[in-house]
């Protein structure tokens, strides 16, 4: 653990193995993977290919059984549990496939939750909120409405606003367009990529939808990345 060398990458994985508790066969085995700062990465793969495990390792919710996971020049295994949560709150934004928001909280309360854990000030929060809402083409009047009163597209944009409110250096987006129609999808992607580029955020984008590939600078197939099938089955 101590002989690790910190790398100047946004993401650097070396010999990472993860197996679920009480299970012998690893679900994820990555020899080596790197992502530069500010890169836009598209990850595609079938379900069960280890995508969500990879994302859980990157956010520090799960810790690898062996190997080194470095995120934003920080080795995840070096952080104690509470520090990992703090690191995630401050540096990583996440958007899920769907149901990102607490349906019974207002839009502003949903966003404030992210701020509660990262601890940015109220003025900064207000300012960034307005900025993000105009970038995401969201009406500020929606702020006080309950999250479940919004359309699916609006909810996804609020989720992005929440993921970006803390100015994370890494943004992880998991199948965000599956609930959107084609036209909305295109608009959503354009906006997301623009926001990521403007804020120089490294973007990890996971999707089945290979038509979205052209938006990205690095395309990764989980079946290439995860070598469990060749090595660890026996």
């Amino acid at each position: 653990m101590s002989a690790k060398q910190l790398e100047t990458k946004a993401i650097a994985l070396r010999n990472v193995i993860y197996r679920y508790p009480k299970s012998i066969a690893p679900v994820l085995h990555i020899d080596s993977w790197e992502v530069e700062h500010g890169e836009l990465v598209f990850i595609h793969g079938l379900s069960g290919s280890g995508k969500s495990t990879l994302l859980n390792l990157l956010t520090g919710i799960l810790v690898a059984n062996s190997g080194d996971v470095q995120v934003l020049e920080q080795s995840i295994a070096d952080l104690r549990s509470v520090k990992r949560d703090e690191f995630r709150a401050k540096n990583i934004g996440v958007v899920f496939q769907q149901f990102n928001l607490f349906p019974y909280l207002s839009v502003i309360e949903n966003i404030k939750l992210a701020v509660y854990f990262s601890g940015i000030g109220h003025d900064v929060f207000q300012e960034r909120c307005q900025e993000l809402f105009s970038c995401l083409n969201l009406d500020l009047a929606l702020m006080e409405s309950r999250a479940d009163m919004l359309s699916v597209g609006q909810q996804q944009r609020v989720a992005i606003a929440r993921a970006l409110i803390n100015r994370p250096k890494l943004l992880i987006v998991d199948e965000p367009t599956s609930a959107l129609d084609n036209e909305a999808k295109h608009g959503f992607m354009t906006m997301l990529v623009r926001l990521a580029k403007e804020s120089q955020t490294t973007l990890i984008f996971v999707s089945h939808d290979e038509t979205l590939m052209p938006f990205f600078s690095q395309q990764v197939s989980m079946s290439d990345l995860n070598s469990t099938r060749e090595k660890d089955v026996n």
Partner: peptide
């Protein structure tokens, strides 16, 4: 899960 990714500790 949402709370956890937002940085809530267990």
């Amino acid at each position: 899960a949402i709370l956890r990714v937002l940085g809530a500790s267990p």
